[in-house]
Amino acid sequence: MAPAAGTVNIRRDVDDKFYRYRMPILLTKIEGKGNGIKTVIPNMSDVAKALTRPATYPTKFFGCELGAQTSFDEKNDRYIVNGAHDATRLRELLDSFIDKFVLCASCKNPETELIIAKSDDIIRDCKACGQRTKVDMRHKLTTFILKNPPKKNGSDDGEDGDDAFTKRFNEDAAALPDASNADTTFETDTSPEAVRARMAALEAGLRNTVLLGDDDDEDGEDANSPYGILGRWLEENRGETNAVEVYKKIQELGIEKKHKTVQIVVQSLFTEDIVTEFEEFAPVFKKLVTGEKHQKSLLGGTERLVGLEHPSLIPAIPKILMAFYQADILDEEVVKQWGTHVSKKYVDRDTSKKVRKASDPFLKWLDEADDDDDEDDDE
């Protein structure tokens, strides 16, 4: 097991306590002497995991930059660069590797995946901003990557990588399964009168949503807009659909990249059991939430669901936010800004104040977690 290490920002040039992308501090250990001296990197696998890259890539990068031989024993978690190299130098080289092979060239976010295009170009596919940027193919490491491609390998036709949800979606979309929750009992009144009443209320809410939405959404307030269609479909199939079906419907409507879609899904799909229900539908949100606007729509939809439809859920806001945060679809800075600034964008001001005030325990937990990280860095 690798020795414990503190953590640093993946982008070490970013001096922001709310920066969410962290990695262990690279450790080194000199072994041997004379011509057999070598530098072992005991926590390379942990560092590489934080960068979502195979540990062999940064190790080989070190060798390319230093003109040194490298060796890997993945089974025993040993990554070695021949020669004696101090930790400071290797950490500087790691910064260079991150800049060249991890960070998105457009938004400088490390949330990227390497894919091999049909042209044998190596592409950084950014899950934060959606841009695809080519790495510098003149670097020697590219030859190694082409010979040892990442396990999650996409194509250059614009499709997502073969992550677990995409794989499941592709397998199930052609022949969608029956309701996965058929044995679950729901207390919702499903009589025709009750359904019609809920539809009317939902459509009114959707119209208000569009009127209150951002200016970059060009779809009108018509209930027959893609958002209105999606909202009605989610309401009608609530409790009788699964993640694959929901995402397929969103794709059919062509609104999988719209941030307002996230809001509609939250307020139309979930019930008072949102914390439990979210576990099943988290993969959908990981697909939909790709930027700050999407996160704000996630919070806006939650605000409407809790503040207007299920006020009894207001005390559960910390649990709901924790579920979003642990699923890695909510950034600290976004939720802190939301929790401390009342707005009437999605609900009336009084309701907004109640919902956001209820988030205080979660925000306090985030602050305490940051303090713990600071103490670890000091040590």
Rank of each mutant, 00 (worst) to 15 (best):
A201V: 12
K344N: 14
F101M: 07
Q251G: 14
R304E: 08
K17E: 15
E332P: 07
Q267P: 02
Y346F: 15
T188F: 08
E221D: 14
V289L: 02
Y21I: 01
K100N: 15
D156I: 04
L94R: 00
T56Y: 00
T290F: 08
G301V: 04
H259P: 12
R91L: 03
G231N: 03
N148R: 09
P283T: 00
K293F: 12
K127I: 04
K258N: 13
S343Y: 06
A323S: 01
E375V: 14
A173F: 09
Q295P: 00
V265Q: 04
D328R: 09
D95P: 05
D348C: 05
V102L: 07
D376H: 03
R20C: 03
H259M: 12
K260V: 09
S225R: 04
A174Q: 15
T166M: 12
E203D: 15
V244T: 08
P42L: 11
T142E: 08
G6E: 04
P150R: 09
A128I: 02
G205I: 08
E171A: 13
Y19E: 09
S180V: 10
T209L: 13
D350F: 09
T351D: 02
V244A: 00
G228L: 05
K336Y: 09
G34T: 09
K100D: 15
T340P: 08
A50P: 01
I255T: 09
L146V: 11
R207D: 12
L313R: 05
P311R: 07
G301S: 02
Q131L: 15
N109T: 08
D178S: 13
K100C: 12
K29M: 13
M322I: 06
M23P: 01
E245S: 05
L103W: 04
L27T: 04
M44R: 06
S45A: 14
D217G: 08
L202N: 00
D371V: 13
I30E: 09
T88G: 02
Y346S: 02
E159F: 15
Q326T: 04
T142R: 03
G154C: 08
A174N: 15
V355R: 00
K319R: 11
N9E: 09
Q69C: 10
S191Q: 10
R304N: 06
L234C: 03
A197S: 15
D46T: 06
